[in-house]
């Protein structure tokens, strides 16, 4: 099953594009993530032709996947040739000419505008956040918003950490909490953070870990929780106790790395 939203990451550097695609893809194996980097001469820069080629290939792949998914249920004719409803491509660019060239590609082919959107987000953080959101089956607007929201991550973390001390004492009410120690040697790095955030997104409750939003892979990674650190897991809302138990168990199991 392929997620209905794919990512195209456009960088000045072929290495950076490839690396960002690898990083985002590792956390969201169902999502088609494509890195496009370098100029027309292969050096640093941006190539319109490469962007156009990758966009059309990714759109074609999404359409194929939609046909394959739809075929058993209602026959190939029942599916849109342009992919699943709500599907499409979120594009991220790194610096000036990447962004400008993507915009130019969208202006040159107006038919793209319906299914391709450009995020205004930090390249790596936006790609990771978008990939994890897309992995959950979210639609184009939701994935775009997830990428765009990543720019607010740094401020959110600072606010959470400064509020942590005062809020810890007053927590209570319908909430639930528990503590767990990080056991795997690498700690809450990218892959475990993605697993936790995806799990939390599935649960109905609102979950925080050491004060940060546990449904945000970026905020979890930014905790820098290494092996041996004790984490406070708190939840409010429906199924709060189960959510805490589930997250605690997940972290305690060591993500298959112990």
């Amino acid at each position: 099953m392929t997620a209905r939203v794919a990512l195209v990451l456009v960088s000045h550097s072929a290495d950076l594009a490839r690396g960002a695609a690898e990083l985002a893809g590792q956390m969201a194996p169902d999502v088609l993530v494509r890195g496009v980097g370098g100029g027309p001469d292969g050096g640093l820069g941006t190539s319109l032709d490469a962007i156009q080629k990758n966009l059309s290939e990714v759109l074609a792949a999404l359409a194929d996947a939609a046909l394959a998914d739809a075929a058993p249920a209602r026959g190939a004719l029942g599916s849109s040739a342009s992919g699943t409803p709500g599907g499409g491509v979120v594009v991220l660019g790194d610096l000036g000419s990447s962004v400008l060239t993507v915009e130019a590609a969208l202006e040159l082919d107006e038919s793209l505008a319906e299914r391709v959107v450009l995020a205004r987000a930090p390249f790596v953080e936006g790609a990771v956040a978008a990939a994890v959101t897309a992995h959950g089956g979210a639609d184009l607007d939701t994935v775009l918003e997830s990428a765009n929201a990543s720019v607010r991550m740094f401020a959110a973390i600072e606010a959470a950490q400064s509020a942590e001390a005062s809020e810890a004492a007053s927590a209570g009410g319908a909430g639930s909490s528990g503590t767990v120690t990080v056991r795997n040697p690498l700690g809450l790095h990218a892959r475990p953070a993605a697993l936790v955030s995806r799990k939390v997104a599935e649960l109905g409750a609102t979950v925080t870990i050491d004060g940060v939003d546990a449904s945000s892979v970026l905020q979890l990674m930014a905790l820098g929780a290494t092996q041996g650190r004790e984490l406070l897991v708190e939840a409010t809302g429906d199924g709060a106790a189960e959510a805490v138990a589930s997250v605690v168990a997940m972290i305690d199991a060591g993500f298959g790395e112990v």
């Binding site: 100029g39 027309p40 001469d41 050096g43 190539s47 060239t101 130019a104």
Partner: peptide, 8 residues
């Protein structure tokens, strides 16, 4: 063909 910001 330009490859930099002046292309777009």
């Amino acid at each position: 063909t330009v490859g930099g910001a002046s292309g777009p």
